[in-house]
Nucleic acid binder design. Sequence first.
DNA 1: GTAGAACCTGTAGTGGCTACAGGAACAAGG
DNA 2: CCTTGTTCCTGTAGCCACTACAGGTTCTAC
Lengths: 140, 140
Amino acid sequence: MRKNSDADLTIGRLSAEARVNIETIRYYERIGLMAKPPRSDAGRRLYDAAASRRLCFIRRARELGFSIEEIRALLGVSGGKGRCADVHALTIRHLGEVKRKIADLRKLERTLARTAERCARDASPDCPIIEALSEPRCGP
Amino acid sequence: MRKNSDADLTIGRLSAEARVNIETIRYYERIGLMAKPPRSDAGRRLYDAAASRRLCFIRRARELGFSIEEIRALLGVSGGKGRCADVHALTIRHLGEVKRKIADLRKLERTLARTAERCARDASPDCPIIEALSEPRCGP
DNA sequence: GTAGAACCTGTAGTGGCTACAGGAACAAGG
DNA sequence: CCTTGTTCCTGTAGCCACTACAGGTTCTAC
């Protein structure tokens, strides 16, 4: 059962361990984010502990909203090939994007709340929300 | 130049007037959000003022983050066929989603900020961000 | 041995666009 | 009228990060 690289995790077990969908793992392999693992005689993928750790890294980074390409860069650094300053810069840029998204959504929230407030909420076909969306002036 | 339906706007002019991309207008036609307009002898789409107003409605609703299907429903109401209460319900649901997204992003923002703060920002390959992403404990 | 679960590859789809390719028609200026 | 550049057409494919099959093989438990 032991292979030379200690790879004995099938994809299903890896999926459960790292909490990443099987199809997603195959996808990550396809796009090069995960290495092609050794196979059993039956052609089944066999993963080791290092692969599991890498997949967890990827999942955490995804959860933080980093894109696939950003994660590629992060993985580059995590191998000791990059610098902390680069990671920081990437994180700060990402943080800025998150802040911008929040600001946009806050604006949107306010507009929606204001509009909904004016709504009579009855069976009438007259509706201030629809009226607002139907403003005749549209062009510049 | 005048047609029986007063349709004399080419798609480019409609695009400029409603501030919606030409390709997007064609896409909306394909998915049934916009009606197929009459054509010139040369096969060019010719839009009237009502089409322009409808497109503006769609754009505004998109800007408010409503999905295509939600916009379909809103357009149904705007023709006098629905009720204000339904619009309100749709808007409140949407508002709830926006609030949830904001809450998620706020959480994310805090995590990113906290992590970035611990960063030495130097040329070191040792990096607390990478360390956090590399936590050995991954499974449940 | 059998049935169900796990795994494989390859392809297509999700949502909402966006960008071509390869052609035809139009408009403006000389 | 001719030329050139712009606008428009249809159809197809791609973006991002997955996700869901179809149709098959292999494994596991009873």
